[in-house]
Amino acid sequence: MTLGPHASFIVAAYIVTVVVVISMIAWILRDYAAQRRILGDLEQRGIKRRSQASRGDET
């Protein structure tokens, strides 16, 4: 595979795409860990959701 005279533009396009996708994945996973941590914190302090306090499982 040869990329011809405009190789830098092709490579740049792929790099930008990879960076955007990876940073999005990283952001989502970090957000997930953060939410999990806060939830665990709150649960440890004995706080329950309305649904857990009274039966039924609606958020």
Partner: peptide
């Protein structure tokens, strides 16, 4: 597929975020 994957992951975060929110409100109310 990548879009769907990210969407599911982000929806999961959003549900957790709302849970945190409602729990904090329960905490504040109590």
């Amino acid at each position: 597929l990548l879009f769907l994957l990210l969407l599911l992951l982000n929806m999961r975060n959003e549900i957790l975020r709302r849970r945190v929110r409602s729990m904090r409100m329960m905490q504040a109310a109590s």
